[in-house]
Nucleic acid binder design. Structure first.
Lengths: 331, 331
DNA sequence: TCTGGCACTCCAGCCTATCGACTGCCAGCG
DNA sequence: CGCTGGCAGTCGATAGGCTGGAGTGCCAGA
């Protein structure tokens, strides 16, 4: 734990560095209104802070830069939850009331919304459709050998998978199978249903079984949407860092793991190396779970340089996750 | 028009520069097997080529670099259509036979496919769903006030839009409206249908009308998918160029206009300033229309530095557009 | 018409010197 | 005892000067 003055100095360093991206020196800090000591005293304190790992000097005779530990102390102790300013809140509200159509499309746009609001990369890990109960199933024939299985979920989203037909599968059988599946699945979650009871009609039973199989096979591997590549390019000066961050962001699996990990550990911010993804060690991730009907079904987050604006990112992510949750509940 | 030797030299310069990204000097060219003259002669020819605008020197005493005009001559006269190598062709085939589910998702993945195959940004301007005939319409009630309209198209893709219900819209009315719409729309294109004939039941008619309206409202403004931000970051050394290219790629409107423009002018390659989008003046764009049932309903393309591998890009874009077209036709 | 050779140009890399922004430390003051 | 002003020291960033090398243009001769 740090005494009051060290705390004030650390806070000032972090804020100055976030604002300028330049190492900050003792005299700058001494000029801060809230600090009423001379630069010499600040120097002493900063030396302590460095010794304890909150700050580092890029080199002797340079100012100091916060370490991951320094940022961590800042977000844990010096950051008020901070309301999002009214204009932004309204913008988010408008976005979600204007949003319509496909869930995926909305999620994708949400990642872009996060990106533009925070000037960082936005990440949305999709609520998996399987966790939402089924409302209706229908099988639509397209030709003699092809059909599409359409599933409508209770939240209004729709999934579809192709299905191959065999001889004897006529329209009647298809709609019978659809009706039977609807009855068997209505109100239940796809993952919870292993099979429906037989109807006695072999063809219908076969259709039901294969359709169900196809549906479970399509069980979307957690879908993830990212946006804001340009923001990443703006955030870092070194082009290699831009490259490695962008390359990592394109590996969906890594992003999903990263975000889920943080959420599952009950954290909302992972700073620098804390998240353990080496190519992103210059980045922090701020996340919030998306809760739908009391269940945690997805996450939203932003990813930016460790010197990002944490209060703003936290507030934004919070508001967006909440409104996204509401929006999905409504359907 | 250039004589044979100038042509050979220009070609060698372009290829060397594409491979190395370094200004190429006369002696390098003279060593090329297909060039059987001394470096002095090559120098003379290169001076001519520069005078005529095919090459430039970044500065005296540096090698030469192709201009946009130089690349243009190269792709117009020196590039054989070039088959894609078998392995890649197979990869594309596998991709499309494995592709399933939502059209949008597939298009999005197609942009990523283009990106990974060519190491450039991939762009897909979506074939608008409205051009595909409808197979079936269904309205599924979710609650007393909300429903989802599901449209299955003949190619197996599915669209859905939310619909608000009013008092008196019960399940019976919903399915009646669905059936009526199915009958009225079956085999026809959404855009071609302005209204269905009345049934006599006011509630059903209202449902049909509003559902149809909602469907036409969702008429996606040309959708565009881009992928491969990391490739862009790898293609340019200067971080400002990366920034401006990525920022431009995020402006969907600009991308759609850019691609449509090129396709509409009947071109398949736009080099540097040819496409007129200033922030992308360091980029070339290679496109191919996606043709479905004889109609041009979308485009695929790649965007990369002017020193991209044109033959490969052309071949890739060609194969992908063709297979994407087939895939969508089949559904 | 082509070629070898030569003089010339100019960037990239390296070294050096200078400047300035820091720090650490110390002695003195309240 | 803690704070402060001051001073010496450190090191990166910047600018200037030098050199080596890659490349050119041009010319005279085959």
């Amino acid at each position: 734990m740090l005494d009051e003055r060290k705390t004030a100095i650390l806070s000032a360093v972090v804020q100055e560095y976030i604002a300028t991206a330049q190492p900050v020196g003792s005299s700058h800090i001494a000029e801060t209104p809230s600090i009423n000591v001379s630069s010499a005293t600040v120097r002493n304190e900063m030396a302590h802070l460095e010794h304890e790992g909150y700050l580092v000097q890029p080199h002797t005779s340079a100012g100091r830069v916060p370490t991951d530990k320094g940022y961590r102390y800042f977000v844990d102790h010096l950051t008020t939850p901070g309301r999002l300013d009214a204009a932004t809140t309204r913008q988010v509200g408008e976005f979600f009331s204007a949003a319509h159509g496909r869930l995926e499309e909305m999620l994708h746009q949400t990642s872009n919304l996060l990106a533009t609001l925070t000037n960082n990369a936005g990440v949305v890990v999709g609520p998996r459709a399987e966790a939402v109960p089924v409302r209706r199933v229908q099988i639509v024939g397209l030709s003699a050998t092809a059909a599409t299985v359409v599933v409508v979920f209770t939240n209004g989203t729709v999934e579809n998978v192709p299905l191959e037909l065999v001889e004897g599968d006529d329209e009647l059988k298809l709609s019978a199978a659809g009706a039977h599946l609807s009855a068997g699945l209505d109100g239940r979650v796809l993952g919870a249903v292993s099979d429906v009871e037989p109807t006695g009609d072999a063809a219908v039973d076969r259709l039901c079984t294969t359709a169900l199989e196809a549906l479970r096979a399509t069980a979307s591997p957690d879908q993830v949407f990212t946006g804001g590549a340009a923001a990443v390019a703006k955030a870092f000066d070194a082009v290699e860092v831009v490259r490695s961050v962008l390359a990592t962001l394109e590996q969906q699996f890594v992003v999903v793991t990263l975000v889920s990990d943080i959420v599952n550990r009950g954290m909302s911010v992972a700073i620098g190396v804390e998240h353990g993804v080496e190519p992103l060690s210059a980045c922090s991730v701020v996340v919030a779970p998306v809760v739908i009907d009391g269940e945690h079904l997805g996450s939203v987050g932003v990813l930016g340089p460790t010197r990002m604006n944490y209060p703003q990112a936290l507030a934004t992510v919070e508001v967006v996750s909440e409104q996204l949750g509401n929006r999905i509940e409504e359907g």
